[in-house]
Design a protein around this nucleic acid. Structure first.
Lengths: 226, 226
DNA sequence: CCGGTAACTTTCCATTGGAAAGTTATGCTT
DNA sequence: AAGCATAACTTTCCAATGGAAAGTTACCGG
């Protein structure tokens, strides 16, 4: 087969910069109008359905109904496109952490659970060999994510104390060490869990529990770090 | 270019099953005699020099001076070969942990430092999309590695107590949670550090330190888990 | 000595990302 | 309102990949 199965054809969407409608419904048109979004949607679809390995330039463009080089003007190359997609994942993870507002343990849980609930996206987000980490969009999303983890407002100290500490975004070692440990813990748990690395242990459990429960207990076994 | 640069030609090695020397030095011979080892050596060379992305079947076989399908009889496919290579990495990491015998913090440090000192190998070891995790050699190496982390002998309890606990390799939840957290922490730190994810934070440090120092402080900021 | 089989090589193919060059439409300028 | 620069695409081409298939070579047990 040449394509067929993977052809999900993401619709154009129409959003010309000016309000002018370009044409009612010309089955296929040369200038797509909203290709970047269409490509990202198509890529997301493929990612969620078939995993990162299926994210080929050709599969994505095929799903969007364009030629396999059509992404170049917008994203440069595949790594550029995937970086933009990964950036949306970063945003979502960040939103999940913000939503889990509360104790540092709930934030930690939110990090790992997001990864488990969006394993493919999470993998893409940290596959440095696949994405162009220098894309501004990605850089900012990534740093905004870390900012949540390094936000001292979760701690027990007063607001005034903490606002003082974070001045100019400069950290002192005790804080940096704790943020690093916290990120390391949740990221490691996320990676191990989504990769099935915890299952051998889980199957040797006296009374078995779900992946998430094991992760939760693991987080609880560590005193709050933030 | 077709090859040249990547041609590192790993020497045959000679180890015919019987003691009989097959031929003094016939520049090239059809039956290599020790292809599996030669391929693994070549792969290791390429991995350490150029990273996992360079680990193509063709590059490896080229470096070993054989045709690009010569690995099939021995390893099945590329994922099989890489799994064997990754297994040796698992063994080395395990050895490093054993050598770091002592407090659980030193073991944790050894885990992360091995990853940082052998970043490419460490990446391969956990790239489930590249390796055939079902290969017995890999499975055993991986489980042996975890066994070190889950070895209660690092704790403060008596030998008798612990030997009792680990009976039949069945864990109860409190232990499992601690082992999971410990592995998560060191693995996460290893992944983040080797991927350069800690550098943005590091550059915002009041008084900068090396990657390793940051990692060490991070580990120290967490109470011993094992 | 000979036949079976494992260890290789050669050839072939589908798939990939990207470069290069051609085509089409858009919108800015006058 | 016309036309022209240019951005958004398509087509074609290429080198590289992993693996299947079929052909060769050499070892090894009888």
């Amino acid at each position: 087969m040449t394509d067929s199965a993977t052809t999900a054809s993401v619709s154009p969407g129409h959003a010309h910069r000016n309000g002018k409608m370009p044409d009612p419904e010309p089955a296929t048109r040369y200038h797509h109008g909203a290709l970047p979004d269409a490509l990202l949607s198509a890529a997301r679809l493929i990612l969620e359905r078939d995993g990162v390995a299926a994210l080929s330039l050709r599969a994505i463009t095929r799903a969007a109904g364009v030629s396999h080089t059509a992404a170049v003007p917008h994203f440069g190359d595949l790594a550029g496109l995937l970086a933009e997609l990964a950036a949306t994942g970063m945003d979502e993870l960040r939103a999940a952490l913000v939503a889990a507002d509360g104790t540092s343990r709930l934030i930690a849980e939110a990090y790992v659970f997001y990864a488990m609930d969006h394993a493919h996206m999470f993998e893409l987000m940290f596959r440095s060999d696949l994405i162009d980490r220098n894309r501004p969009r990605y850089r900012e999303a990534a740093s905004a994510l870390f900012a949540i983890l390094a936000e001292p407002s979760h701690s027990s100290a007063t607001v005034a104390q903490e606002e003082d500490k974070v001045k100019d975004g400069i950290y002192d070692m005790p804080d940096a060490a704790r943020y690093t440990a916290a990120w390391g813990l949740v990221h490691g748990l996320a990676v191990l869990a989504t990769d099935g690395r915890l299952d051998p242990l889980r199957s040797r459990l006296k009374d078995p529990v779900s992946r998430k429960e094991l992760v939760r207990q693991a987080i609880l076994s560590v005193p709050p770090l933030l």
